[in-house]
Nucleic acid binder design. Structure first.
Lengths: 248, 248
DNA sequence: CGCAGAATTGATACATCTCAAGCTGGGTGG
DNA sequence: CCACCCAGCTTGAGATGTATCAATTCTGCG
């Protein structure tokens, strides 16, 4: 089983699609060489659980392609997604043994993993890694706080619009599309996963998506393929400051 | 005005009440000496805004005593608290100019401030600071994610119980009380601030507090002085895993 | 073709919000 | 010393948004 997951195919860090955004972004050539020695790639299938809450983790790593979610679950089954991991995002926490969350692949995924102990040693030795990780963690903290506003104060319609605009924005920057008012992308989440992200039920998600479609804010082709004819309109529906800025 | 706020009274870092928890916790003696050169104390009154959202910040620092809040506000006035800063917590973000949130003192406060530029230079030079800051930021991220579960999935009653248990826990650890089942503390927040924290209205907060009191989960003396006769009962009401552990 | 998972839609229940009216306690000025 | 005031809080009644329960309807796939 593990043998199937693990691929030792060596990619060159120089060609890596997430080279400029991941935890290694600031590394010099010699630092990259040392990283290459402790790295290995691992594939996960859609639906596969990467880490169970509470389990011991012996690696950390970066999402190379695909999407994963962090979720928390209460005893009675209520679940809340607390993080969405897109390519270049970091998984795991140096200095702590277990993850407090379930990490689940929602699409097929490739991860660039580092054995935890050697990585922690490298962090001490090469400040570039520690510095970049701090920067990324501060960004994640900002994103989490942004999301607290969504969860605590926005209506169901605003929540959906917020999620769509975040996915649209990240998708556009990743694919290096120019900032446009019309955007097209695929939803990487089921209605249920969206509900878990937004603190709603899947029925409410479905109703609000239908409503946004009915009102012309979005267009749907199938269940997943979304067209946003006017991005600033979507931002408006999300209740965000539309300080003019597109795709920052 | 600024003259009144700023106190140049030099405290010795060795005697500092937050020495072992703050961003300087890992510093050696010589590092502390360099920190002392760029630090200054500043007092804030209850209700005073420390930083306005979007404003330029020329300092970072640690809360020495008192309590501050981070809040986000939408155009129509809806507000969500996204952070509660207690003694030893860090304020500001090295590497970024402005704060995306309002930072407000909810009680009289003392802060140990560092001028931002010299502090950023020290971060590069002394890994102990950067490392401790990463550790603290990861803890804050965990706390933020915990809070996302509260905001997204818990009922009003569970939300109140969650907030009370967090305050009780932090208060007990700060005052180094032994782990007991009976806890006594003062609420540092108004009903409105609690509502902003929990994504509720202040009326709902008031009703749920009354209900918890009626059900014997808490006892009130005045509006702010709280007694929790059975802490595990409170944790139960919060919907948390009561994995036996008191005050970890 | 027909099944199973995913999504939509409808009817009703219920938790929380909203609006509105008092209450309480600590401070102030006459 | 009392009367008043006001911010903070409590309580009530009704409105509303979202959850819940229950059918269908899609859609991709063996």
């Amino acid at each position: 089983m593990l043998n199937e997951d693990t691929k030792t195919v060596a990619h060159d860090c120089g060609d890596c699609p997430i080279r400029h955004r991941a935890v290694c972004a600031r590394c010099e050539t010699d630092e990259l060489e040392r990283l290459e020695e402790i790295k290995y790639y691992r594939n996960f299938e859609a639906g596969q659980t990467i880490i169970w809450s509470g389990d011991r983790m012996d690696f950390v790593g970066s999402v190379v392609s695909g999407i994963a979610t962090l979720t928390q679950t209460m005893e009675d089954g209520r679940t809340q997604m607390v993080g969405l991991l897109l390519p270049s995002d970091f998984v795991g926490r140096p200095g702590r043994d277990g993850s407090p969350y379930d990490v689940v692949a929602t699409t097929d995924m490739v991860m660039c993993c580092f054995r935890k102990r050697p990585f922690e040693e490298m962090m001490v030795a090469t400040p570039h890694i520690a510095h970049r990780l701090l920067e990324m963690t501060l960004d994640e903290l900002d994103a989490a706080r942004e999301w607290m506003l969504v969860l605590g104060r926005k209506t169901a319609r605003e929540k959906i619009a917020s999620l769509l605009s975040i996915i649209a924005r990240r998708d556009a920057t990743l694919n290096l599309q120019p900032a446009q008012n019309r955007l097209v992308f695929d939803l990487p989440l089921t209605r249920e996963a969206m509900a878990d992200y937004l603190g709603l039920t899947l029925e409410t998600v479905s109703r609000q998506i239908s409503a946004l479609k009915r009102d012309g804010v979005i267009e749907l082709e199938g269940k997943r393929h979304v067209t946003v004819p006017d991005f600033s309109r979507l931002l408006d529906e999300a209740g965000d400051d539309t300080d003019g800025g597109l795709l920052v």
